[in-house]
Amino acid sequence: MLFWIIQRDLLLAIRRRSDVLTTLFFFVIVVSLFPLSVGPEMNLLRTMAPGIVWVAALLASMLSLGRLFSSDYLDGTLEQMLLSPQSLSILVLGKALAHWLVTGVPLVLMAPVLGIQYDLPADALFVLVMSLLLGTPVLSLIGAIGAALTLGLRGGGVLVSLLVLPLYIPVLIFGAGAVEANMAGVSYDAHLSLLGAFLLVSLVLAPWAIAASLRVSME
């Protein structure tokens, strides 16, 4: 069931490649704007890099939330999913994981390239990728709650950012913090452990909240 829904959403994403690419290029462009605005001072950029990449990842992942349920909602598939005898929590978990595979994983793969632009050392690049790998699924899971709550509302896109961005803050702190700790020569294990803890907690609790939100929105 879980794999079926992931497979289905991935297939839909492959058929509409532009959506995936838009998110990825948004990420690249936002990250590239910062040197233009604060100046090409390499030392400054190197210290700012983890924060910039993480904020851009947050925004990119949030930007694509609108698509998570809206197309299924519009063509009535979502209603059928709610009516189906399968557990709705598992269904939405599958959808959130598919969202991560489509938007999160490209960001993770792209991050080292952007890190090189900011002159990050190799081991910092590795930590950046690890932190994004642990953190971006949390973003998808928390974001899905916001997406489910604002389904079919006027101005849902802006509203989602108001709801979801404050909840993203812990992930941002420890994601960017891991890279900064590594660059400062301190151990980053604690940061990655905490990110892992966030991932586990949100894997357990978020599907339940997403399912409840969808039921509220589809009443």
């Binding site: 604002t150 509203l159 709801l163």
Partner: peptide
């Protein structure tokens, strides 16, 4: 703002409750 964006009061109550609990 979530409650203000939803016209149906029942849905606004429940959606607000979920976001408050989260």
């Amino acid at each position: 703002s979530l409650q203000a964006a939803i016209d149906d009061p029942r849905r606004a109550d429940k959606a607000g409750a979920i976001i408050a609990l989260v």
